[in-house]
């Protein structure tokens, strides 16, 4: 009973926030994906590496020849596509989330430093931003992976390159305008150190815009990870990611389209939901639109 009333509550809150049914749907989808990723171990019917060479290319249950054993069919090694998708989702979301966090933190810190210290720090930071703009993160990632070989830590760091310069520019611009405000000057006039000024006052006051930026950036991060994995340069077998499943499945399109298409749908819907959610959040929260409160 309480959960039902809570649900109604959440829905009316969202509506109060101006959330259209589409946005509610997006939030619902994203929550579902996150929950599936978290509880992958409980939800996956079969372990994702379990092969059954006697059951290769089984079609999904809704097609003729499909069975309830493999709801979404099997791949070229007889592995359960549903189970693999659940684990692939976990990997993709984990990498994209870590990548987004690392990129947001590094970019924000760089922007903060540029705006607070100005001078040479600012110049170097802005030059690095220029380099990132000139060289899309896909190419930077490919260059690093080509020369250093693939490992998961490097891969996550490379994924975090997606859009870090946007946080840096955003944070720099916001801090530059915010730090001339009287409340910052007042705190400085009390003798507060840079740490207190930045982390107690500046950061909380610009956080909303940065969160919106992170939301808008997340689809790009997912696409970078899945693109690299699709090209065979990202997540390596026996691990799996949504992009890697697509990359592997594209060789069997003719007789087993589901191996590639099903994970593709998940990627598509997730990035779509995140983009719409991000746009909506920006309209709601961006302090340049909504200054008071």
């Amino acid at each position: 009973m309480s959960s039902a009333s809570e649900q109604v509550d959440i829905r009316s809150t969202l509506r109060l926030w101006g959330a259209s049914p589409v946005i509610v749907l997006c939030i619902g989808w994203l929550l579902a994906m996150i929950l599936i990723a978290i509880f992958a171990d409980l939800l996956a019917p079969i372990h994702y590496t379990t092969q059954d060479l006697t059951a290769r290319f089984r079609p999904p249950a809704f097609m003729t020849g499909g069975s309830a054993d493999h709801l979404l069919g099997t791949d070229h090694l007889g592995r359960d596509v549903l189970s693999r998708m659940i684990y692939a989702l976990r990997t993709s979301i984990l990498i994209a989330t870590l990548g987004t966090l690392i990129g947001a933190v590094m970019g924000t810190l760089m922007g903060l430093a540029a705006a607070r210290f100005r001078g040479i720090v600012d110049m170097v930071a802005m030059m690095l931003c220029d380099v990132q703009t000139a060289l899309p993160s896909l190419f930077i990632a490919i260059a690093f992976l080509a020369f250093f070989g693939n490992n998961i830590v490097l891969f996550i760091i490379l994924v975090s390159f997606e859009g870090w310069e946007r946080y840096a520019r955003l944070a720099r611009g916001l801090v530059l305008s915010e730090q001339t405000a009287d409340y910052i000057r007042a705190v400085e006039a009390f003798g507060a150190g840079t740490g207190r000024v930045v982390f107690q006052h500046l950061l909380p006051n610009i956080a909303a815009s940065l969160v919106v930026q992170a939301t808008l950036n997340f689809p790009g991060t997912i696409l970078l990870e899945t693109s690299l994995s699709f090209l065979g340069l990202g997540v390596q077998p026996p691990d799996t990611s949504l992009g890697l499943m697509l990359g592997e499945g594209r060789r069997y399109l003719l007789n087993a389209w589901w191996i590639a298409v099903l994970p593709g749908i998940i990627i598509f819907l997730t990035t779509l939901a995140m983009s719409l959610f991000g746009d909506w959040l920006r309209d709601r929260l961006d302090p340049t639109i909504n200054k008071e409160g």
Binding site: A181, D182, Y183, A186, V187, H201, P204, N205
Partner: peptide
């Protein structure tokens, strides 16, 4: 209003 941090 400008001299006070509106988040605290």
């Amino acid at each position: 209003l400008a001299a006070l941090d509106r988040r605290l």
